[in-house]
Simulated scan of single mutants.
Amino acid sequence: MSDVVPAEQLQLLIERIERLEAEKSGLADDIRDVYAEAKANGYDVKTMRAIVRLRRMEKNARQEADALLQTYRDALGLD
């Protein structure tokens, strides 16, 4: 096996990663701005983040997480 790294290909890959990282940073700033706007309009950002996290989950995974949370709440008498 050769230890020679094709420099041009490596450079292109690194540049792509750098561009994507810059885009990711810009998107993170945009998301932060939307949450700030929501907070300024009286919404609870912590709850909104929880809802976004739940909506990303598959229905079965969400149901399992809800069931486990309820089991723990019952065990601790939090209802």
Score class of each variant (00 low, 15 high):
S2W: 05
D3S: 10
D3W: 11
V4L: 13
V5P: 00
V5H: 01
V5D: 01
P6H: 15
P6Q: 12
P6G: 03
A7K: 14
E8G: 05
E8R: 10
Q9R: 15
Q9V: 15
Q11F: 14
Q11E: 15
Q11V: 10
Q11K: 15
L12D: 12
L13F: 14
L13P: 01
I14W: 14
I14G: 05
E15C: 04
E15M: 14
I17W: 11
E18A: 14
R19S: 13
L20I: 15
E21K: 15
A22L: 14
E23N: 11
K24I: 13
K24M: 12
S25H: 07
G26C: 02
L27G: 02
L27P: 01
A28M: 07
A28N: 12
D29T: 09
D29Q: 09
D29K: 03
D30F: 03
D30H: 06
I31W: 00
R32W: 00
D33I: 02
D33Q: 07
Y35R: 00
Y35F: 11
Y35A: 00
A36N: 06
A36D: 08
A36H: 07
E37I: 04
E37W: 09
E37C: 02
K39Y: 05
K39W: 04
K39S: 12
K39D: 05
A40I: 02
A40M: 03
N41G: 09
G42S: 02
G42M: 03
Y43D: 04
D44I: 04
V45S: 03
M48L: 15
R49V: 04
A50I: 07
I51N: 03
V52E: 11
R53L: 02
R53T: 04
R53K: 11
R53Y: 05
R55M: 10
R56Y: 00
R56K: 05
R56T: 02
E58F: 08
E58W: 04
K59Y: 09
A61F: 05
A61N: 06
A61T: 10
A61R: 12
R62V: 07
E64H: 08
E64P: 00
E64C: 01
E64F: 05
E64S: 11
A65S: 09
A65V: 06
D66F: 09
A67S: 09
A67W: 04
L68F: 10
L68D: 06
L68Y: 05
L68C: 02
Q70C: 00
Q70F: 06
T71P: 00
Y72L: 13
D74T: 12
A75W: 05
A75F: 08
A75V: 04
L76W: 06
L76I: 05
L76P: 03
G77L: 06
G77F: 09
L78H: 06
L78V: 07
